[in-house]
Structures are given as structure tokens and as C-alpha cells.
Design a binder for these strands. Structure first.
Length: 895
DNA sequence: CTTGGGACGCTCT
DNA sequence: TAGAGCGTC
């Protein structure tokens, strides 16, 4: 499992301090935060699946105590634990939608990111942090007496090989007294050159643990989520350590303990050996445990495997892993896929198009969101598919370059790629039956390129808008924004880090510093700048809220965790003493101090774990955290709703999204800035965000939310999303249209298909190969908002069989929708096609729909409503409308 | 209808 | 570089 990733040099094998932060049963925590009433109850998250109560993908600790595990079905969990809360992951486009958890993961990562630029997001709920710099810095500070470890930071800390953290601390303090105490042993195990690092290993890991404690406290405080952490010299060990004490704990894996730890560690536990390769290794070497690998020489291992893997194994079996923590915040690709097992195999062209449409729709949504957040566009797309070829499952993937894209083009590209790479695409003699059934479909996009720097781009947009405004109100010209802002001297991450801890210590020294008080980084000159440490998105959301609600709520940015009480610390005392003794060796008082600290730790730990068991303090903590977190006083439910509104539903944002994408062509014509010529990296993106001033964000918001000239026009608040709308018929209508379109996309599509399928049953056609909808049928499941609509569409779509439909050809049927004669065998496919077509029209033609409204309003006979569901759609919600602009029009004309 | 499915990264050729 | 395939969560 050698990897081509970046590696640090072998000399630093014990120099780094790496942290793995792993969220505890993350999906459950997200649900608990969203539904406070579930807190403290056994809870599991199930992936919606009607078969036996759905598949469990996450279990909280209360439920684990009852024996509920992942891989169980919801029903089994209920048997074991009748009072369990089963949360379903939301379903969108008939697929599990995990965006809620992705967003939550990003929220956490935003906190983590403040602690080091070397942050590698490994998955939605895991991240590696290289905190070597911080640890080094603290080491120096310890020597100057400016930093001191304090015992209460280590209460939830464990060290592998030690019964409790106090013993580990004792060991370290003893080494303070005698730095070379283990050298005899060390010299047998380690290279001479490594001895300095080896000697410092334990204390540096311990400092790492104190950082970890602060990281976790910050995460808890700012997001409400709990996590576990591993502290070690490299990623693999940190990962191993993190799993050893959970939940809400952290574990150090001391260098000297790795060997004995590996003696009983199954090979498969090591990242990279969990799969096939791990099995091969065990078989080839005839071993089970990691520690057994050390018996083989590097050459032997290279011979049995290959050169790279041999070396990798050789090192990893000694706890050496040089893989660097590679900064990565955003994913490199965005993809989604779906299986079509058994009867759900896609057998027809129209079905294929339908599902490609669904996947593309998701991809497109996520691309738009990603564009807003990360200002980048995908340059490549890949379609993956598994075909049934003579009973064999054959997987393929084909890629194509992407220039401009929207949902339709993604569908088209995908289909073209599949067609072009399938020998016989359609079954001979049929216009729509696939020759090879499709069992799996996936679309992913990647090779992102930054469009332009966020700052410049947004300011350009702002400038455009401002220019338009100027044209409209010439008597009161709007000042164009300054595109070239005076650049402040760049704050390096290191500098920020340093100031962070400098501040930490300053705060610590204040006697009156409240344990839970917020403190703002004194280096941040303005509140806005302090806020810029938040993620772009959070910031953006916040601004939106503020703008929308016109009442600004100051959100304090928490930059430090509980300050240490300086004077209490043992190390501080110890070091002072060391200084005064100036190199003289062990003094009798040392051992007393050591004893005292160990006892103190024990006492604290005992007290703390009692609190934890009772779960009272944790609970209140969490609750108050939730209330503080970005909620502006709204209950978590409302926060969730609001977030959704802000991201997807609010008028301004939708306009922004669409316009942003569509405007890109024009933006690309602009000369490239220096920034744009740089290679695109996620990290750079962050720097841009961090270092750009607050102005661009204001312009961003200005752009995202149409400037409604509230000075000229009275506004009212939308009761759905809280946005301010001009109190005027057209704008209101436009805004409601938007909400309605959202509703349509969410509810209508699946209902519609459901009802069509019922219609199909009535006409007793053969079962459609479409995957069955899991929703309960009938009007009961239809929201009030859409019920009348759905019915009308259903009537329209579920075609009644006509007597004269059979043509002279007994194998032909007439389609009740388009009157075309279709082969009977192809009819289900054909009807699918109509459904897909209709859905796409509805979803993509909001503009048309709105325009049609004016026409349909005057003469809406029932017959027309049946024929033109679009019109019905609109008139349902717009009885008072009198012609209107689309949202986009509204925006681009800028009032 | 299945021992989770999907999403993502990485590696080898 | 593309495509196949693996590993991990």
C-alpha cells in the first residue's frame, strides 16, 4: 500500500505531531442537534428503505448500549430497543440525501481549520491535523515559562500502554529530571540520529494532547458536536489511537508503546491493510498481527510484495508512516450514483434518460452550491455504468471534458458517452429498448478550476450591478466598488497561529477571565476581520440572515477555549524551579510534585467521569451551545429550515446561483488576473477567503440578495424564508413562484411518478422497470400546497385507455399522450419518457411558467388545465397575479 | 432484494 | 491521460 502521495522526509519520522479528529456517531449527533427532543435517547439513523425498517448507518451510544449496531435493519433495532428513535436520512430524487451531514461536517472542519493550515479532511466526519508547529511553539514557550500544561486539559486523555494519563505524565516529568533515562533502551530500538526526537516524543505528544483538548472543546462549543481524537507522530497511528477510547475521549499513542501495541493488533486494522492487500500480506507471511511483520527484513518484504509495498510494510510495522498531512478542505470531485438491482435494471432508453436526468439534477445542484461556496467549476465529467452483457456484469467508465454545463448537457454527455461506448446500444428492431440492461449508473465531475478570485469576481459582479443601478437612477449615482482594495500585509497562518496562542495566554493571565467567556482575537482589528475566520459560507449565510431580517445580530467569534490557570500548573512551577537551579539535577521536591500532579489528575478525572456518566453537565452544555450557534435565537429546527432557505430556497440565492453560472461565460472574457493564472488548489481558495477584506462579502450579499431599494419601496417579509420582498404584487408573485417551484421539485416529482404507476396498473400494462417509489400513495402523502395540482397532473398523465387505441397491428398501441403508435413492448418505456419529459419541463421552465401565467389567468377552462398542467400550476398560487417578471428578470433588471 | 449504499480518493496500467 | 479497480468511511 505504498502511496504516491506527498511524504515527509524520513528524518522527521518522530518529529511530527498529528491529530486525527473523528466525530462520534456523527450522523446521530447531527440528528440530535436538529431534534433536541431526541437527545439522551437511544437513536439510530436509517437509510430509507422499506425493507425491514431501513438500513442502519449510524447508532448513538445509548442505542449501542442496547446492542444496536450498524448493518442492522431498523426492525431489528426496534426489537432490541423498543424506545429507539429511528431517524431517516432525507430522501431526495428517491435517493438518500446526505447533504445535511456534509454541511455539518463542513461546519466542524471550519472550526478545525482555525488551528492549523495543515488540515486534511479524510471524510465527512474525520480530519487530520498536523499540529507540529503549534507543539513546537509551545515547547519553546514552556522553556521560557510562557506556556504551561495544566492537568484539567488532560482529563479525557488516555495514553496507550498506561492505565491512566497520570502515569504517563509521571513518566514525562521523570524524564525532565533525567533526560537520558531511557537511552540504553532507546539505543537498541532507534537509530542514533533519532534519539533527540525520541527523547522528546512523549512530551510533545502530551502537548499535542493539550492542543487536541482545545480543538475538541472548540468544536463542542461552536458546533455542539462531540468528537474523539488520536494523537501520534503520524496519520496511521493517530487514526489507530483515535479509535481506542470513544466517545468524547482522546488517546495518545506513545512512540515507545507502538511495538507492544502492534503485537496484538490485527493486520487489517491498519489503514491500507483492511482489504485485499491485507489478506494477501497475512497469507503470504503466515501472520495475523502487525507486530509479526517486523520479523521480516525489508528486502524480504520487497521480494514477497513489491519494492514500494515492501518498504511501506517494513516501516509501518515499526509505526513509521511518512505520509504528509495534505491540506485539503474541499472534495476534489462531486459524484453520485445509483444501483438498479434485479428487476430495477434499466432496460429502456427513456428510463435511462430519466435516471441520468435525476443524477444530473443532483450533480447540477451540488455544482451550483459548490460554485457559490468555492468559486470553481468542474472541467471534467465521468459517467460510470455497469451493463448486463450476456449475464455478466461489465463495468465501464468514460469521461469527457466539460466547458459549460447545465443539467441538460450533463445528461446529454452521459448518454452520448454510454452510447458511444456500447457496441450495440439498442436492441435490434426496437427504437427504445436497450440491448444491454444497465445495473448501475454514476456521474461524477471533477478537475475543478477556480473561475477567478472570489474577491475580484464578486466585485465585478457588484460593479456590473452597480452600473445598472446607476443607469436607472442617474440623479443619485452609486459609487462603484473599489476593485483594487488596499491590500493589508498578508497574515500568514503561522502568524495567526502565534497570535492565537499569544492571545490564549493573555487571556489566561487575566484574573477575571470567565471560564466560558468569549474572547475575541485582539489581532483581529475589526469584528468583520475576526469573523473572516469563519468559513465563507457561514459568513455568507450569516450576512444573508442579517440582510434579510434587517436586524443585525452580532455573532461573537470564539477564538480561544478555556484559558489555563497559569499559576496552578505543575510544569510551570517545575520549569521555574529548573531555571533557578540552572542545570542542577534532580531535587528532592520533584518527586513530590510528580506525585501531586498525578493525584490531581486522578481526582479530576474521577470527578469528570462521574459528571460524564450522569450526563447532566454535558447536556446543559450542549443545549446552550446549540442556542448560541448561528441560530440568532431561533430554535434548531428553525435554523435548519433557515439554512435550507438560505441555501436553496431564497429568491436572491436562486438568482445568484443561476446568474452566477450563466454569467460565467461573460466573466471568462475578462482578462485573467494574476490569481487566476495560479494553479487551482483548495488551500489557495482558503487563503483568498481569509485574506480578503470584509468588503467583498458585503458586495456578495448585495449581489445575492437583489437590492430592492427599500428606501423607495415598502417591503414585507416572506413568511416562508424571511426575505424582504417589495410589497407589490409582481414581486410577491415572483417570490412565491420561486417557493412553489422548490416545492414542486421536492414533492411533486415522486408523487407524480407514483400516481402514474398506479395508472399503469389500472391499464394493466406490464410492470415498469422503474424502481418503486417508497412513499405511501394517495393524496394523504401530498402536502396541502401541492395536492390539487398533483391531482390534476395525475389526471393528465395517467392516461385512460381508449378503445380505438389498437391499430391494425396487434403489437402496436397508441400513446394516449402523444397519440403516436408504439409497440406494446415499448409502451412502458414510452410512458416513462413522457414523465421524464414533463418533469424536466416543469423544473426547468420556471421562466416560461411565469410568463404563461399571464395568459392562462384570463381564460382557464378545465380542459386547458388538463392539457397544460403548467398553467394550472401557476394559477393555483397566483390568483392575484397580474402578469409578472421571472425572478431572474427581476434581478437582472435590478429594479 | 442485499451481508449498506454511496461518495470519494488513490493506484496501477 | 483514460479507464479499471480497490479501499475506506
Amino acid at each position: 500500500m505504498a502511496s504516491a502521495r506527498i511524504h515527509v522526509s524520513m528524518q522527521s519520522k518522530y518529529d511530527r505531531v498529528v491529530l486525527l479528529v473523528d466525530m462520534d456517531c456523527f450522523f446521530c449527533q447531527v440528528e440530535e442537534k436538529q431534534h433536541p427532543e431526541y437527545r439522551n435517547r437511544p437513536l439510530a439513523v436509517v437509510q430509507y428503505n422499506p425493507w425491514r425498517g431501513g438500513g442502519i448507518i449510524a447508532v448513538n451510544y445509548a442505542a449501542r448500549a442496547k446492542g444496536v449496531t450498524r448493518h442492522m435493519r431498523g426492525d431489528e433495532a426496534k426489537d432490541l430497543c423498543p424506545e429507539i428513535v429511528l431517524c431517516q436520512v432525507p430522501n431526495i430524487r428517491e435517493k438518500a440525501d446526505t447533504s445535511k451531514y456534509r454541511d455539518a461536517g463542513k461546519e466542524v472542519a471550519n472550526v478545525l481549520q482555525r488551528f492549523t493550515k495543515l488540515l486534511e479532511r479524510a471524510s465527512v466526519d474525520e480530519a487530520y491535523l498536523d499540529i507540529t508547529e503549534t507543539v513546537n511553539h509551545r515547547m519553546q514557550q514552556m522553556q521560557s515559562g510562557a506556556f504551561a500544561l495544566q492537568p484539567q486539559e488532560l482529563v479525557n486523555t488516555f495514553a496507550v500502554g498506561y492505565p491512566n494519563i497520570g502515569d504517563f505524565v509521571n513518566k514525562i516529568t521523570n524524564r525532565f529530571a533525567n533526560p537520558y533515562m531511557d537511552d540504553e533502551r532507546f539505543q537498541m530500538s532507534y537509530d542514533q540520529n533519532d534519539l533527540p526526537a525520541v527523547r522528546q516524543s512523549d512530551i510533545r505528544l502530551l502537548i499535542g494532547a493539550s492542543v487536541a483538548g482545545e480543538v475538541r472543546a472548540a468544536v463542542k462549543k461552536e458546533t455542539g458536536y462531540e468528537c474523539s481524537a488520536g494523537i501520534a507522530h503520524n496519520k496511521i497511528l493517530a487514526k489507530l489511537a483515535a479509535g481506542m477510547n470513544k466517545p468524547n475521549k482522546q488517546t495518545i499513542l506513545p512512540l515507545a508503546e507502538t511495538a507492544s501495541f502492534f503485537d496484538s493488533l490485527p493486520v487489517g486494522k491498519i489503514k491500507g491493510l483492511g482489504g485485499k492487500f491485507g489478506e494477501v500480506v497475512c497469507e503470504t507471511l503466515g501472520i495475523k498481527f502487525m507486530g509479526q511483520v517486523v520479523k521480516f527484513t525489508e528486502v524480504e518484504l520487497q521480494r514477497k510484495f513489491d519494492e514500494k509495498n515492501g518498504t511501506w510494510l517494513f516501516n509501518i510495522s515499526r509505526g513509521i508512516d511518512m505520509e504528509a498531512v495534505t491540506p485539503r478542505f474541499y472534495s476534489k470531485s462531486i459524484g453520485c450514483c445509483q444501483k438498479f438491482p434485479g428487476r430495477n435494471n434499466i432496460t429502456g432508453l427513456k428510463t435511462l434518460q430519466h435516471w441520468l436526468g435525476e443524477l444530473s439534477s443532483e450533480i447540477n445542484d451540488r455544482l451550483e452550491k459548490d460554485f457559490i461556496e468555492n468559486n470553481r467549476r468542474a472541467k471534467q465529467m465521468v459517467v460510470q455504468y455497469v451493463q448486463d452483457i450476456d449475464g455478466e456484469e461489465v463495468a465501464s467508465s468514460r469521461s469527457t471534458a466539460l466547458k459549460d454545463y447545465d443539467q441538460e448537457s450533463i445528461v446529454r454527455f452521459s448518454l452520448d458517452l454510454i452510447k458511444a461506448n456500447t457496441k450495440t446500444f439498442l436492441r435490434p428492431g426496437s427504437e427504445s429498448a436497450l440491448n444491454n440492461a444497465i445495473k448501475f449508473l454514476g456521474i461524477s465531475v471533477g478537475k475543478f478550476e477556480t473561475v477567478s478570485s472570489a474577491q475580484n469576481k464578486l466585485q465585478e459582479m457588484f460593479a456590473n450591478q452597480a452600473a445598472k443601478k446607476r443607469r436607472i437612477s442617474a440623479e443619485e449615482p452609486v459609487q462603484p466598488p473599489k476593485v483594487n482594495m488596499e491590500k493589508k500585509p498578508k497574515q500568514t497562518e503561522e502568524f495567526k497561529m502565534k497570535s492565537f496562542f499569544a492571545n490564549y495566554l493573555q487571556v489566561a493571565k487575566k484574573e477575571d477571565a470567565k471560564p466560558d467567556g468569549f474572547s475575541v482575537d485582539p489581532q483581529a482589528a475589526t469584528p468583520a476581520e475576526a469573523t473572516s475566520k469563519n468559513s465563507f459560507k457561514e459568513d455568507y449565510k450569516q450576512k444573508l440572515h442579517v440582510t434579510a431580517r434587517t436586524e443585525a445580530v452580532d455573532e461573537e467569534t470564539v477564538l480561544t477555549s478555556t484559558p489555563p490557570e497559569f499559576k496552578k500548573s505543575f510544569f510551570s512551577q517545575y520549569l521555574k524551579q529548573q531555571k533557578s537551579n540552572q542545570g542542577s539535577s534532580i531535587s528532592g521536591e520533584d518527586s513530590l510534585d510528580v506525585q501531586g500532579l498525578a493525584e490531581e489528575l486522578d481526582a479530576i478525572e474521577a470527578g469528570n467521569s462521574k459528571d460524564f456518566d450522569e450526563d447532566t453537565e454535558e447536556e446543559t452544555d450542549t443545549t446552550s451551545d446549540i442556542q448560541m450557534s448561528k441560530s440568532e435565537g431561533l430554535p434548531p429546527d428553525a435554523v435548519q429550515k433557515k439554512d435550507q432557505n438560505t441555501l436553496n430556497d431564497s429568491t436572491g440565492n436562486e438568482v445568484y446561483t443561476k446568474t452566477g453560472i450563466k454569467n460565467s461565460a461573460q466573466l471568462e472574457l475578462l482578462p485573467l488576473t494574476e490569481d487566476e493564472l495560479k494553479p487551482s488548489t483548495s488551500k489557495r481558495k482558503f487563503d483568498e477567503i481569509e485574506n480578503s477584506g470584509s468588503n467583498y462579502k458585503e458586495s456578495y450579499v448585495e449581489f445575492a440578495v437583489p437590492n430592492l431599494r427599500t428606501d423607495l419601496l415598502p417591503t414585507i417579509k416572506c413568511d416562508q424564508c424571511g426575505a424582504n420582498i417589495p410589497d407589490e404584487a409582481k414581486s410577491l408573485q415572483t417570490h412565491r413562484d420561486h417557493h412553489f417551484a422548490q416545492e414542486l421539485s421536492r414533492t411533486l416529482r415522486s408523487n407524480e411518478r407514483e400516481e402514474r404507476m398506479q395508472g399503469l396498473k389500472k391499464v394493466s400494462l406490464k410492470p415498469t422497470p422503474l424502481k418503486k417509489s417508497k412513499k405511501t400513495t394517495g393524496s394523504g402523502s401530498i402536502s396541502n400546497n401541492t395536492a390539487p395540482l398533483t391531482n390534476s397532473i395525475t389526471k393528465f398523465l395517467s392516461a385512460k385507455p381508449t378503445q380505438e387505441q389498437a391499430s391494425s397491428d396487434p403489437h402496436m398501441q397508441q400513446c394516449t399522450e402523444c397519440k403516436a403508435f408504439i409497440k406494446s413492448v415499448d409502451m412502458p418505456e414510452h410512458l416513462d419518457y413522457h414523465v421524464a419529459k414533463n418533469l424536466q419541463r416543469k423544473l426547468n421552465q420556471q421562466d416560461l411558467r411565469t410568463r404563461n401565467a399571464a395568459l392562462s389567468k384570463e381564460k382557464t377552462s378545465p380542459a386547458q388545465q388538463k392539457k397544460q398542467s403548467q398553467k394550472k400550476l401557476n394559477s393555483t398560487i397566483s390568483a392575484s397575479s397580474s402578469g409578472s417578471k421571472t425572478i431572474a428578470q427581476f434581478f437582472s433588471q435590478s429594479n
